[in-house]
Design a protein around this nucleic acid. Structure first.
Lengths: 232, 232
DNA sequence: TAACGGATGTTAAATTACGTTAAACCCTCT
DNA sequence: AGAGGGTTTAACGTAATTTAACATCCGTTA
């Protein structure tokens, strides 16, 4: 799937670079520009899904750039980064068609959440749920969403608890899944009886995985369990 | 054209009334609720274009209400009014799908500009209202408004309850629809008998969806149900 | 190293939740 | 009052999960 394209316009080289790096790490296609003029030119050259722009910049300020962009394009969302918290400025920004603004200093996480809030509204279907991903466990293909464990033409339907536990084990393959952690994650709390219930499910999972000799759920005494995937 | 419908949730009667009056003067249809519980109930009863909610409220706080609303509806924008300027709070709000927040004290004008900013962004897709839009569920096209479930040339006419339940499942596809949540949203409260009634409707829906092998309503023991759309 | 106590392995029974069908109950319309 | 569609209740069957029981393992200590 194609990534979202962001146009970041920020004259402070340090902040600009950090911002771009961070957003690229989050899998966005990021174009970084130094001022409003450069930003506007970039916008005319290529399509962008979102513009993030500083307000105070040399050559051409953010609001001016935004108003020019709006003449070309009424829809692309614009987020302003502004050190000025004065009301007049923010209001002027909204009049030009800004969609949000973030006051410096801001946390990257907050900005990301605002970006996501905007994208959720505009392109809501793109969020490819992490839930629907398959695990490969030895000869098996495990889908926690569908709760299916597939080995060739044999499909086992797992129960809710079996599936949750296997998912945790798979996520921590070759590493200890702490008993207490799993109990809290699946059962909500840890008591003696929950703990015994978990042991029962470990037995069930072992039975499911038996067809693959290279798979083993071992107990780590006093700690928890470990799903071992041997290299064949 | 029909006016925009706003749901305002604010426990302070003075602020709430002033807000409602002001927004009505600006030609919005405004429904005012006193707390999150009342607000959520109002949301289940009618369609709203935007929710404006306080965060700190008796009975049910704004974030909790927002997360419940999000389960019903992923798109309706939510603006929070918050006296707390703590970062954790705002971030928690955005995670739940808030679209903006305004820190008290705020000017009515600023709030109005933010409302307009959101509507400018979303009004294009509001022409085909959430309500009139069809769900695509596997090989079916489902219209909750018409209560029709179409598969090629076969059109099933669903009853009210069937339709409401299928809508909730479709909105939470590949995710658990909590039993208690659905009971409150459809039946108004949850009792043992309502719960069994819901089971009966699940059976009916399974029968409707049977023609598509890639669709399945599975039970999540003790939690609720999940509509699985398998990747074909 | 023998022995002890706590932790785990496994199976089966008990409990609770769900699946399904059909009958009973309500409405509304006539 | 009767018919009909929609919804709830009842009844019985099945599945998921927890609890119980007993065997075995593990680390520690005498």
């Amino acid at each position: 799937m194609q990534n979202f394209r962001l146009l970041v316009v920020e004259d402070d080289p340090n902040l600009g670079t950090i911002l771009a790096e961070y957003l690229r790490a989050k899998d966005y296609d990021v174009k970084l520009c130094q001022d409003g003029e450069e930003g506007f030119n970039a916008f005319t050259k290529k399509e962008y899904d979102l513009v993030i722009s500083d307000v105070m910049m040399p050559k051409k300020d953010g609001f001016t750039m935004a108003s020019e962009i709006r003449k070309l394009n009424k829809k692309t969302p614009i987020i302003f980064l502004t050190a000025k918290s004065m009301k007049e400025d923010t209001i002027e920004g909204f009049k030009l068609g800004a969609d949000d603004y973030v006051t410096k200093p801001f946390s990257m996480e907050e900005l990301l959440l605002r970006i996501n809030a905007i994208f959720r509204r505009t392109k809501s279907e793109m969020i490819d749920n992490e839930n629907t991903k398959d695990f490969t466990i030895g000869i098996f293909s495990f889908n926690p969403n569908e709760r299916t464990l597939i080995n060739g033409d044999i499909t086992e339907k797992l129960t809710s608890k079996e599936s949750q536990l296997l998912k945790l084990l798979a996520q921590n393959r070759n590493d200890v899944l702490e008993r207490e952690f799993a109990l809290k994650a699946i059962w909500g709390d840890d008591s003696y009886f929950n703990s015994r219930s978990m042991d029962v499910y470990i037995t069930k999972l072992r039975k499911y995985l038996r067809p693959d000799e290279n798979l083993e759920i071992i107990n780590v005494h006093g700690k928890g369990f470990k799903l071992i995937v041997k290299k064949s």
